[in-house]
Amino acid sequence: MAKTFAIVVGESSGDQLGAPLIKELKKRYPDAKFIGIGGEKMIAEGFESLFDMERLSVMGLFEVLSRLPELLKIRKTLKNHFLQNPPDVYIGIDAPDFNLPLARMLKAHGIKTMHYVCPSVWAWREKRVEKIKKSVDSMLCLLPFEVEFCQKHQLNATFVGHTLADKIPLEKQTLQAREKLKLNVDAPVLCMMPGSRQSEIKRMAPLFIQSVNKIAQSIENLFVLIPVSSEKREKQLQEYLVEASFKYQIIKQDSISALSAANVALITSGTAALEAMLCKTPMVVSYKANALTYKIISKMLTIDYVSLPNIIANREIIKELLQDDATEQNIVNAVLILMGKNEQLRQIELFTQMHRSLIAQADIQAVNAIDSLLLSK
């Protein structure tokens, strides 16, 4: 009998993990059905999305509260659908605040559940581990130290690495990416990524654009690449880019080429920092959250950093400008320093070492873990 895999992702980074996972699953289960919530990349692999992924793409305590009725309605609809049409396994990809409660409901009814991307319980709210254990049968971890953390709490976990770590070359592909994007091979290029969510762009795009306007005054012939994850986000960004005095090109659904082509990246934290690290692109991370959200979360944090490169290294190897430090002048100063060759080379060398640690044939490892779960009693 054909297998059914229920998968739910909440943003483009989850879609980026979900699509190759589906592709690998289809090799072993050619007649399988894939259904839930996914993005364009997953849909291109034959995935049936019951809701627009954008509806789940929300971040921050108070931002979530404003959308809570809609999110609860979507979750209830999914729960009813999966209980009436039980999948062989439910796979939540990231979006833990949405996925884990849904997984818990399904697990209580005998449906096998898995979560892909370990929630950052090692960074804050460690007590959540007990709820996670009640929600999922198995955890797929991107980072090696997460497996040790999960196992300490008797949570079944597998290190799979990151699918992009397997696909992106270890050497920085600047020339190849610039040829692909038809860019001047000698031009100073900055990749600007003010977020993939509507709320992030609203908060960060004006600050980033004004900062880059000043950076362009100091760097002759600066060219800016701006990756976007969807037409909606492109349309939103265009409203802010009327204030831009620099030359730029919007790159649709190809952040890897944009990052690879750039000398330096200015990005919000999150998956973009991991992508930049894997592309060996020196970066400055800057982010502002809702003031009250930041005040609450910062008191709960048990780590000193928010960007994955710094978390993996357990020290500051890239500049983080957060909240009150996320000012136009601070961003300008940090980017201009990073445009110096010596600092770029230092980060590139460190990123190459970190990239090696994440190569693990992620998609194959993930499917092996799914197979083990399917065979378990």
Rank of each mutant, 00 (worst) to 15 (best):
Y29I: 03
M53Q: 12
A362I: 09
R75H: 13
F34Q: 03
L374E: 05
I296F: 13
A205M: 06
T352R: 14
E24I: 10
L140D: 10
Y29K: 05
Q84A: 15
L61V: 13
E171W: 08
G340W: 00
G110M: 07
V332K: 07
R125H: 15
I43E: 07
G14W: 03
I317F: 06
I348S: 00
L222T: 00
D15A: 05
A165M: 00
L143F: 12
E54M: 04
R346W: 11
M339E: 04
L222Y: 00
A19T: 05
I267H: 07
L207W: 04
A261F: 00
Q236G: 00
L143Y: 09
P169F: 06
S218V: 11
L155H: 01
V332M: 06
D15T: 08
D324L: 15
T268N: 09
E328H: 11
D363A: 15
G270H: 01
L301D: 10
P86M: 06
I318G: 01
N333Y: 12
V242E: 13
Y287T: 02
F82N: 09
Q176K: 12
I37A: 12
L375K: 15
Y305F: 14
L190G: 01
L375Y: 14
D52V: 02
F223M: 05
R55A: 15
M300G: 04
Y116D: 07
N99I: 00
Q353N: 12
P69G: 04
M193Y: 13
G340V: 07
V367A: 08
K76S: 15
K280P: 08
V228H: 02
L102D: 02
F47P: 13
L321V: 11
L68D: 11
S255K: 03
L358R: 02
R67E: 14
S376K: 10
L181K: 02
P188H: 03
K3W: 04
P309W: 01
M105H: 15
P101A: 13
L50N: 03
I215N: 00
K3V: 09
Y116N: 04
S66D: 14
A276V: 06
D363W: 08
E179T: 13
L207N: 05
I267S: 13
F246I: 02
E126R: 11
A157I: 03
E179H: 12
I226N: 02
M193T: 10
N290V: 11
F351K: 02
Q238C: 04
E220M: 12
Q217M: 12
K134T: 06
M53T: 00
L21K: 01
L21G: 06
Q347E: 08
L142G: 04
I256G: 01
R125K: 15
V228N: 04
N330R: 10
M1G: 14
I201L: 10
V189C: 00
N310Y: 02
S13Q: 05
A177G: 01
I317S: 00
S199T: 15
A44V: 09
M59W: 09
N330K: 09
E146Q: 10
L350N: 08
N290E: 13
P20A: 07
V285H: 02
K27P: 06
T271S: 10
I43C: 07
R104H: 14
C191D: 05
I74V: 14
G46T: 12
L175M: 06
T77N: 15
R197V: 10
L374M: 12
I209M: 04
A157E: 09
V9E: 00
A334N: 01
M59L: 11
I296G: 09
L350H: 07
M300N: 12
Q238E: 05
Q365W: 08
T163M: 10
V367R: 06
